[in-house]
Design a protein around this nucleic acid. Structure first.
Length: 861
RNA sequence: GCCCGGGUGGUGAAAUUGGUAGACACAAGAGACUUAAAAUCUCUCGAUCGUAAGGUCGUGCCGGUUCGAGUCCGGCCCCGGGCACCA
């Protein structure tokens, strides 16, 4: 065996062994407990990035650990292959999206194989292939037939110059990324799925997911945003645009008597009507429509409004309330109108201040304290005042009373409302799964009956319009003998990623979306791993789709994944120069760093011109910041085990990971030391059987370290996902073993046991080197070994270190017998010089003993 | 703006249930080996005062609870993620 660690050879050997023996092929076996470990599949952007390496290493470590615990593990991989970047690449490089995507997949698949991930490649799924999306199309038509999918008007980002729809990321500072033209919101017909009908199930289901991080559950709870309030109708003096009332929803009905104006969306029918009467309103309405559809943009824009000159009647007082058009009210949320109470809502308060509208206090504190409304609104719930017969009521009493009073007049009722909106699945793009619908001559919408509705792949992109739009070859078709026009919008790519986990169970099944035998065995997913950025959207659609599939009789469980691990981002240092307000970023290779005497980076110079560049700090690795580290270079230089070890050691999985080249070298050095030590040890004469009862102190100490490590590491893998401390504990164990002097046969026996345990503990993280080194010490494949058994007798200690504190400060450390009583411990403590100095026995008022840990003596100040 | 995280030495981090702050590494410094370098091995390594023993301070900031707070509570600052057409 080579004395030098050569990862290229070691890794190729191990990977060949796994492939030849088909060791990661997952087969249904009702006698074994299954474990389905799923990592979020990648978008095939070209090459793997460090975020992928991190995500998939975590998944692989969990999979390999679970396998070592005797589980029947399924770990699949596939490609989220539809999406916008393929269209951009097509335009930029003149290559069709399908070709570009498939080439990327081939390259990235090879990279994943080099990293040694234990995937069952026979279950690979590629979402842009018709055999995948045909089932998604079929499923959508089932939803249409059930009334779960419908078409309605909804706003998109529209570039008036290019006459095209833009994604949010294609809108830069309110303008089109290509031509800079101010983007406007335009209403177009689009398909929606009724996720709001499942809002309560999605909310209640969160309580059944103790294996999901509380932060993700909190974000989903807030995203769904269940609220209880009143739907209130403000009568209009005369009907406007066919409406007799202006209808609003409020969660603060207790403030109803403080309403001083109404605010409606620019798209509201009343606003449209008002604009026909007053041209300046029409101008204001088009101004309101400028800008993108994103909530960030809407929340940050300056609040603007204009009075319509129209009034609504207050449902209780009958007073006239002016109706304003406001740019922060959106037609798509609720009823497109709100009642405004500037005294008790901060946004309304600011709006009232800006436009000189009256502020009427109707809520006061519980003790009737004086409220100052001159600086800000008072938004706490309290007691009603200035509200006629409602005076003195609290929030709940006021809501109940108003529901009763308004209900009697048919002007209001209690209502549960959700922030969650129905899922818009239409995209006006080419590279997606065609929406399987047709429009007949009379405008009727009918679902396709034959699947797949195939997306043509031999296309030329013009950079603006989808090649399947206004394309008679694609659009003209027949439905039951009638001429029909195909829908030329495609699905949101969140559709594909909402059910891929189920398709992995039977990726080649021809008879339906999922094979019930496989699905019922493998589902639900036992462990899901992916980025925290997916906390609300993907993970909510994923849970929703599972419930839709359950209600279609395709799967049996209520939730798709039992446990979820959200891994942090991979960050790296950025270097840039600012020119005319834009930043030009440089790669780490392009700069030289100057450090101070403590090793802190204080200056960065561009190699090209020797002039300084700005140090931008740690940011998420990305192309635009030029700070991405290509995992390929890392694999080529150090091997897969080093890449895997470093990503696991550098930070706990849920935190962001700061990339540092010298840390990678450190991980590599550890593997080199391990290699040298084990190969040298394997050349020693063969170790005899371990004689547990005949060990000397050093041998006992080493065995204790081995079994302490076994205990800690097993727990860290299984319960805490603390892979960084797994690595640290294994390093500690290695340091101990490599320093254990080999003086006799029992030293060999103890150290042999130690190295075998170490290799098994480390194998999920560094599988190649452990595979190879195991073969030097023992027969058989390390993958097939039963997990080491903890010897609790090896853990026993005769004496322990006990800390003595005085008023919480450490003053002494005592070696005491593990069985010492409280009296014995105190006697020892008071015999200590330091303890006597700070805590003379007669001054001690209280003593707190934490057995096995510390004694705290409390003395008077 | 709203929701969710995070902040500990020169650096990445550890401290699992409120009980010894800094495990394990990286960087740096010193030494051994070497003709030399690389590699390897050994030692030092939070700040500060002290010859030393040891003292004092120290987990973003301010305050609180407790015998005891990195950990719990209240307020604030900074950084990151998400906000429905990037995936």
């Amino acid at each position: 065996m080579d004395a030098q660690y050569n990862p290229k050879v070691v890794e190729a050997n191990a990977q060949q062994h796994w492939q030849q023996n088909q060791v990661f092929k997952a087969v249904v076996d009702s006698n074994k407990e299954k474990f389905y470990c799923l990592s979020m599949f990648p978008y095939p952007s070209g090459r793997l990035h460090m975020g992928h390496v991190r995500n998939y290493t975590i998944g692989d470590v969990i999979s390999r650990f679970q396998r070592s615990q005797g589980k029947n593990v399924l770990q699949p991989m596939g490609w989220d292959a539809f999406g916008l970047p393929a269209e951009n690449a097509a335009i930029k490089h003149g290559v069709a999206p399908a070709k570009w995507t498939l080439e990327n997949i081939a390259y990235m698949k090879n990279q994943l194989k080099q990293l040694g991930f234990a995937y069952d490649w026979d279950r690979e799924v590629t979402t842009c292939q018709p055999e995948y999306y045909r089932w998604e199309q079929w499923f959508f038509t089932q939803l249409v037939n059930k009334g779960m999918a419908y078409k309605k008007k909804s706003a998109v980002n529209w570039c008036p110059h290019d006459q095209t729809v833009l994604a949010n990321e294609q809108v830069h500072d309110g303008g089109c990324w290509r031509c800079g033209t101010t983007v406007v919101r335009k209403e177009i017909d689009q398909w929606f799925i009724r996720i709001t009908q499942y809002a309560d199930q999605l909310l209640d289901g969160l309580d059944q997911l103790p294996g999901w991080p509380e932060s993700v559950r909190a974000m989903q709870r807030n995203w769904i945003g269940r609220s209880e309030g009143l739907r209130i109708r403000f009568p209009l003096p005369q009907a406007i645009a066919g409406l007799e009332h202006l209808e609003i929803y409020t969660t603060r009905p207790d403030t109803l008597m403080g309403v001083t104006y109404m605010a409606i969306a620019a798209d509201h029918p009343i606003a449209q009507h008002a604009a026909t009467l007053r041209p300046e309103l029409a101008d204001f309405i088009s101004e309101c429509k400028a800008g993108g559809t994103s909530e960030t943009e809407l929340a940050n824009q300056e609040k603007k409004g204009m009075a319509t000159g129209l009034f609504a009647k207050h449902p209780i007082s009958g007073q006239e309330v002016p109706i304003w058009i406001a740019n922060f009210v959106l037609m798509e949320y609720g009823t497109g109108a709100v009642m405004s109470v500037p005294a008790h809502d901060q946004r309304d308060w600011e709006f009232a201040q800006a436009y000189g509208l009256p502020i009427q206090q109707v809520i006061t504190g519980q003790q009737g304290e004086v409220i100052d409304l001159s600086q800000q609104a008072f938004t706490d719930k309290g007691v009603l005042i200035n509200s006629g017969e409602l005076d003195g009521l609290d929030f709940q009493q006021a809501m109940d009373k108003l529901a009763e009073v308004l209900g009697a007049k048919d002007l209001g009722s209690k209502q549960v409302n959700y922030r969650l909106r129905d899922w818009g699945v239409s995209r006006q793009r080419y590279w997606g799964a065609p929406i399987p619908m047709m429009t007949l001559a009379d405008g009727q919408q009918v679902p396709a009956e034959d699947f797949p509705v195939e997306l043509p792949t031999e296309v030329v992109m013009d950079g603006i319009n989808s090649p399947i739009k206004n394309n008679p070859e694609f659009e003209q078709t027949q439905w039951q003998g009638q001429a029909a026009t195909r829908e030329s919008d495609t699905f949101d790519t969140f559709m594909e990623s909402s059910w891929y986990y189920a398709r992995y169970c039977s990726p080649h099944y021809q008879e339906g979306m999922v094979d019930p035998t496989e699905a019922n065995y493998w589902l639900p997913v036992d462990q899901y791993i992916g980025g925290i950025e997916h906390a609300t959207m993907h993970l909510l659609y994923f849970r929703f789709f599972h419930k839709l599939m359950r209600d279609q009789g395709l799967v049996q469980s209520d939730e798709p994944a039992k446990r979820l691990l959200t891994q942090g981002m991979v960050l790296a240092e950025t270097y840039y120069r600012s020119q005319n307000g834009t930043k030009e970023y440089y790669t780490p290779e392009q700069v030289d760093l100057t450090k101070d005497d403590k090793g802190r980076v204080i200056k960065a110079l561009l190699k090209a011109d020797g002039q300084p560049v700005e140090i931008g700090g740690m940011e998420k690795m990305s192309k635009s910041k030029n700070n991405g580290v290509d995992p390929q270079a890392l694999i080529d230089l150090y091997g897969a085990d080093t890449a895997r070890l470093y990503t696991m050691f550098a930070a706990p999985p849920e935190q962001s990971l700061e990339w540092r080249e010298d840390g990678v070298q450190g991980a590599h050095k550890f593997l080199q030391r391990l290699w040298r030590a084990v190969t040298a040890f394997a050349e020693q004469s063969k170790a005899p059987a371990l004689a547990k009862t005949e060990l000397n102190e050093a041998q006992k100490a080493t065995r204790r370290k081995v079994h302490e490590t076994l205990q800690k590491v097993t727990q860290d893998y299984a319960e805490r996902f603390a892979f960084n401390t797994v690595v640290a504990a294994n390093m500690e164990l290695f340091n101990h073993l490599s320093r254990h002097e080999l003086n006799g046969p029992q030293d060999l026996a103890v150290v042999a046991e130690g190295y075998q345990v170490l290799l098994q503990l480390l194998a999920p993280i560094c599988p190649h080197i452990c595979h190879e080194l195991w073969s030097l010490l023992q027969q058989g494949d390390i993958l097939d070994q039963p997990w080491p058994v903890l010897d609790s007798e090896a853990l026993v200690r005769d004496s322990i270190t006990l800390v003595v504190q005085v008023n919480g400060k450490v003053r002494a450390r005592l070696q005491v017998s593990a069985t010492a009583t409280e009296e014995e411990v105190k006697a020892l403590a008071f015999a200590d010089e330091q303890v006597q100095k700070f805590a003379p026995q007669d001054k001690v008022k209280k003593a707190i003993l934490v057995p096995g840990k510390l004694l705290n003596l409390v003395v008077a100040g």
